Every structure is written in structure tokens, then in C-alpha cells.
Amino acid sequence: MDEITEGVSKMNVAEFQKKNRIQVSNTKKPLFFYVNLTKRYMQQYNEVELSALGMAISTVVSIAEILKNNGFAVEKKIMTSTVEIKDDSRGRPVQKAKIEIVLGKTANFDELMAAAHEDGENGNGDD
């Protein structure tokens, strides 16, 4: 019984670590959807991990740069790697570049968010 309890507690830790991850696609949502989502995640978790494969890497870099340049985020860690993805159309695995960028709140993040809220920013990118 102890083994099961230990396994479940490890699983909960792993799940918690992934709650602040945003997997970015360059085809599913517009850039500012991810910028605003990242801000909301930082409000909730204080830091966020942006992750992308292949062609979406430039989108993740753009999100991070927008948030850094506007004073919302600081870069904590950047990791790059190559992952093997099974390509059904070719029937064999293909190598894809992967990036993970961890962003944290700046000291004045909350002030900036409050000021943006007062300016009538509705957070959906339709401003």
C-alpha cells in the first residue's frame, strides 16, 4: 500500500510542475492570445514555462521578448533540445527542435497589470 501512496504523491508533484506550462502552436491561436495567457499564468503561478516545437519556436521567442520589453517578465531559463516525433505520413520518426523558456514576474509586474486593467485592457487582444 505504501508503494501506491508514494506513486500517487510523486504523480501529484509532476502534475503540479506542469500546471504552469504553456505549449505554444504557431497555427492554433494568435500571438497575443499567448501573450495574455502568459500574463494570466504569471499572476497565478509567479512563473511560467513556454514550450514549443519546430516552427512554433519563433512564436515562443516573440512572446518572451514582448513580455520582457514591456517590463512584465524576466527570463529565468532557456533550454533547447531535439525530440523524436513519430511522423505518420512518413512512417518513421523525425527529429524536431524544441525550446523551453521559463519566465518570471518582474518586481513591478502587479503594478503594470493593474495599470493595464485601469486603461480598459480587456485581455482578449481585441483592444
Rank of each mutant, 00 (worst) to 15 (best):
G125M: 04
D119F: 08
N20C: 13
I78T: 11
A115L: 12
N36Y: 11
K19N: 13
S58G: 11
R92K: 14
N12E: 15
S62A: 12
L67A: 05
I63W: 08
A107F: 00
A56G: 00
N108M: 10
M1G: 01
K105I: 06
N122D: 12
R21P: 09
E75D: 04
P30M: 11
K86H: 12
E49N: 05
V48E: 03
S51D: 13
L31C: 04
I66D: 07
K18H: 10
M79T: 13
E3N: 08
S9E: 14
M11N: 05
N108I: 14
M113D: 04
I4Y: 00
V94A: 00
V102S: 02
D87K: 02
E6Y: 05
Y45F: 14
I99W: 07
D126L: 13
T82N: 11
K86L: 15
L67P: 04
K19G: 11
N70T: 15
N122I: 03
A73I: 11
E6P: 00
E15L: 15
F72H: 07
F33V: 05
V61Q: 08
K39W: 02
M42V: 03
I99P: 01
V94N: 02
A73Y: 06
K10F: 10
A64C: 08
R40I: 04
E118N: 08
E121F: 09
Y41F: 14
T38D: 02
V74E: 08
V24I: 15
T38L: 00
D88Y: 13
D126H: 15
N36C: 04
Q43P: 08
S51A: 10
G91P: 00
P93F: 05
K76C: 06
V8D: 00
G125P: 01
L50F: 07
K76H: 07
E3S: 08
G91S: 01
K39L: 07
K96A: 11
Q23A: 10
R40V: 09
L31G: 00
D126P: 06
S9L: 12
L31T: 10
F72P: 01
Q23D: 15
K10D: 14
R92W: 01
E84N: 13
T38Q: 04
R90T: 14
K77I: 05
K19H: 09
I63T: 05
